[in-house]
Amino acid sequence: MTETFRFAPSPNGLLHLGHACSALLNAARARKTGGRFLLRIEDIDVSRCRPAFEAAIYEDLAWLGLAWETPVRRQSEHFSQYRAALQTLDALGVLYPAFESRAEIARLVAERDAAAREGAGQWSRDPDGAPLYPGVAKHMPAAERAARIAAGEPHVLRLDLAAALAALGPGAKDLAWEERGAGPAGETGTVAARPELWGDVVVARKDVPASYHLAVVVDDAAQGVTEVVRGRDLFAATSIHRVLQALLGLPAPVYRHHGLVLDADGYKLSKSTGATGLRALRAAGRTPADIRRLIEPVA
């Protein structure tokens, strides 16, 4: 079987050194294995993505000396596939709508935090530091759900994790993945999934038929990706991805999580700050060879 790798940026900003690291590592793995190197444009959030940023992605990657197969997969052209996946999940009884606004979620979290502090604790957070869903929409009567949806009330679809694990039966406790890189604590080899750390994650919004978690597993399967090479910040999310793959009957690739390129203060690079952007580095006279040397300690 031909090994297949992908680099999947979002066109909501300019690429930085962290993106270069991931793209170059994927391309290197493809060369080493005689495999395929694919580019995927993760533009499912059409409100934030811009054609100019997509054009810049192609330009920056070409400047690095990378070549990829065409046509490029663009998420915005495959909404029907994500909706089909949602229908499968809905038929399994593992989805429910939640109607709280961000402000309402923040208020509920503050209330839960206050109650937790009385017990010398804090409301549970997911591995990314975001509070687990604090609402009660899972227990809303079906008639009320239907009426609110029919009225056009904004909502998200959440994965009922307890129902999802029940649907998987005894195999749920054996969910794991093959890790060829390393997690934050050095985890490698066979890694047991811990989806309970994430709670009831969002899998779709009213105006976007998939979250990152759902889209990435559908896309990887559709493109035949055999090894996912990505940053260590996504290591923990693999637990949720394994649940979704199992529910949807999708193949599980192996994973290779790599270290992150950090800024001078030790934080992960962000498009929003323009930190170590490839465009800025090129304007300052840096060469593709310089970029490779800069990421070498991480790669």
Rank of each mutant, 00 (worst) to 15 (best):
M1P: 13
F5P: 05
P9S: 10
L15K: 11
L15T: 01
H19V: 10
S22P: 06
S22E: 12
L24R: 01
F37C: 04
F37R: 09
R40P: 05
I41G: 03
I41H: 03
F53H: 15
L61Q: 08
L64R: 09
G65A: 04
L66D: 00
A67E: 15
E69F: 00
E77P: 03
Y82V: 06
L86C: 00
L86H: 06
T88L: 14
T88A: 15
A103V: 08
I105P: 06
G121C: 02
R125E: 06
D126W: 13
P127L: 03
L132T: 02
L132W: 09
L132P: 04
P141A: 07
A146V: 03
A146T: 13
R148S: 02
I149D: 07
G152K: 13
G152Q: 12
A163G: 00
A166T: 15
A167T: 06
P170Y: 03
A172W: 00
K173N: 12
A176M: 00
R180W: 15
G183L: 11
A193H: 10
A193R: 12
R194Y: 03
P195V: 05
L197F: 01
W198Q: 08
W198R: 09
G199E: 09
G199W: 01
V201D: 01
V202R: 06
V202C: 03
R205I: 00
K206N: 12
L214A: 02
V216R: 12
D219E: 05
D220A: 04
G224R: 12
G224K: 12
A237Y: 02
S239L: 04
I240G: 11
L248M: 10
P253V: 07
L260E: 09
V261Q: 11
L262G: 07
L269S: 10
K271S: 10
S272T: 13
G274D: 10
R279Y: 04
R282T: 07
T287R: 13
D290T: 03
E296V: 01
